[in-house]
Amino acid sequence: MDFFLDLLVGGLTKGSIYALIALGYTMVYGIIAVINFAHGEIYMISAFTALIFGSILSSVGLAGWGLLFAVIAVSALYAAMYGWTVEKIAYKPLRGSSRLAPLISAIGMSLFLQNFVLLAQTPNYLPFPALVPDVPFPAILTRHASDTQIVIILVTAASMALLTLFIKKTRMGTAMRAVSQDLEMARLSGVDTDKIISFTFITGSVLAAVGGVLIGCGMRQIDFYIGFLAGMKAFTAAVLGGIGSVPGAVIGALILGFAESFAAGYISSSYEDVVAFAFLILILIFKPDGVMGAATTHKV
């Protein structure tokens, strides 16, 4: 039972991170129907930015919660800048072209960012500092979860809540929903669709940045390649939940997190990624509309 609970918490933590990334995929796909391959790299870059600014900010005297939130804020800012720039360079000029072009451009962008970090930083793993301060959580919680895991889950939950509020309550959120329903229609009714698309990339990148900082704290080491795998898995989660659906992405991410955690715990950890990819393939082939999305007949 203890082992089971450990795995459960592990899965929940993993799922939370996947959820933060999956939201970026699902929102971008919902709006421009492009798999933003570079999204995983934004997450990776955020982790590196966090590492660097964590070091700089702690040397000027920040510590504890202040340090953690300052690092998240700076990483989010930079992630937003990267996300926005990526959209402008690699996707915007391709609007209205064939379906292959943005996909290839996205793969190219992902490769570029990966190697940019590899060259500018290092091809090796880097140790990530413990940014999460000690918290006196009640013992019932800390029996199976570390402080960091609890913080990851809580921060994720808070981010989700904020995002939901943002989408449901603000003008921008309403416009985003309108654009994802029907981009052409939204444009005709006076929505600045370019602005909305940029903003979607920014929102997704900010969430990925939160995920990037948290995964650094959780795994305690990062390298330039973490974005690829996490990106793939988060995309799986987004599809599993029904791509384009925000709550779906969260549910999909949690399912994937649990599946992976239990597979690693009860089968073999060397097959963890095989399980993830098998999941990915099976979902895309047999459940491309996701568990939440209703089966749709594509219009001709």
């Binding site: 895309l284 082939i285 491309p288």
Partner: peptide
């Protein structure tokens, strides 16, 4: 199985096949 998917999903599924092949060769 690829007959069921097209477009972007096909790209991801083939990517998954490629990775699984490599992981199987490793294991």
């Amino acid at each position: 199985p690829l007959l069921r998917v097209s477009g972007d999903y096909l790209a991801i599924v083939t990517l998954g096949f490629g990775e699984i092949t490599r992981l199987v060769l490793t294991n």
